[in-house]
Nucleic acid binder design. Structure first.
Lengths: 222, 222
DNA sequence: GCAAAAGTGTTATCCCTACACCCATGA
DNA sequence: TCATGGGTGTAGGGATAACACTTTTGC
């Protein structure tokens, strides 16, 4: 059942950089390619856009297929279209990135013994295609948005400590932050609130737990 | 000479919002559609991506065809892909926006009596397809970047007055700026310098002229 | 001389940064 | 009791925002 056109058409795919926090580190989901090209190498999850679905819907579908989650933060990143980026045919890919709260990560990734896995962004394997460039673009975007919005909260679980949150900021920004200034600033935004609970772990004072007041909101700061 | 594929492929186009300053107003270039659909309506210039060219190259080509200019500021904006956005077939469009210095606007637009024209963004005609959404996205991006970068200088001619520059900022931001604070801030950035010339026009004190120190640079502020 | 836009400084406020010690706990 | 991370306030400096009058010109 071939499809014919009067002039050549490229294929169009979506690829997603799916981020979460695991063990206090920013992680990204990668899948191991089962087929050529780049067979056996790691790549961002993605797939071709169906003719009846929007780009955002295609990204949501891929996200659901790989992680089982939906309703999380998902944003179009950039479109990559170098003519030779896929050796098979011309493939233009619309890249997205998603942020998953770290307690919503049960996912297929854990169950599938092989073929899919979380990687710390500090210790990435070789990536197929132009996925290194896509992932770098995603991390740059994330770092930029963390500076001027409350987007980082999209990665936090239902209850978290201020130290965990600061940890995330420091990782994305790649530089240390003063603890007192950080707490003042975050609390002044009025986007998180104390749950009243504490977390006791290890030989030190228990940490107060906080929650995001409105999960669906990403505020621009200032 | 048909082109056949095993599964359906969308068409991929680029559309460009080309901005410049005319008569102290932000203008955008539109072309009148000569064919269906939306025949006779105004639209952003654009065209299909050729199989051997990158997306950026396609955008540059369209820009050159419509305005005769090249080497100006050009940035990918967003990719629009609603399945029904073009009634003929599935067309995914990668939108770009370009900023042209107001003294480089001789262009085809002026010579062609019909079919192409500059429009103030304050007085836009009805637009074809989803181009209202694309143009709005472009203006939002421009407004955002003006706040935290020196991108606005990409629209200024070889010599300009501080009042003209302030005028542009006020238009994009849609609110008035204090004259003294504006001058202090811009001059402190060290991105423009006095030419030594003045412009005398009208019954008032002549205005000092300034030029951009490095045209190729767009700085992020702070 | 008058109307019109160009040009020019100072002050108060707010925000950001730097910085050090006590607290509660588990072992 | 000690090692570990959790929690807290203040002061100085820099940037931002508010604000009004003089200058130069064309008519």
């Amino acid at each position: 059942m071939p499809y014919t056109y009067d002039y050549p058409h490229p294929a169009v795919s979506v690829d997603i950089a799916i981020f979460t926090i695991r063990n206090d580190e920013l992680n990204v989901l990668l899948i191991k390619r089962a087929e050529a090209p780049f067979r056996g190498e790691w790549a961002l999850p993605g797939g071709f856009v169906q003719m009846q679905e929007s780009l955002g819907a295609a990204a949501e579908r891929e996200l659901l297929e790989e992680t089982g989650v939906s309703g999380v933060y998902l944003e179009q990143l950039y479109t990559f279209g170098q003519p030779d980026r896929d050796p098979r045919e011309r493939v233009i890919t619309v890249a997205y990135y998603a942020l998953i709260p770290s307690d919503q990560v049960e996912l297929r990734a854990a169950s599938d013994a092989e073929g899919v896995g979380w990687f710390s962004v500090e210790r990435l394997p070789e990536l197929a295609f132009d996925h290194p460039e896509i992932l770098e673009t995603a991390m740059d975007r994330l770092a930029a948005k963390v500076e001027y919005s409350t987007i980082a909260l999209q990665l936090m679980p239902a209850a978290f400590t201020l130290t965990e949150l600061q940890n995330l900021y420091e990782q994305v920004r790649r530089e240390p932050i003063d603890k007192r200034n950080f707490r003042k600033k975050i609390l002044a935004l009025d986007v998180i609130e104390a749950t009243g609970e504490e977390r006791r772990e290890g030989p030190h004072r228990p940490a107060k737990l906080y929650r995001v007041i409105d999960r669906s909101r990403v505020d621009v700061i200032k």
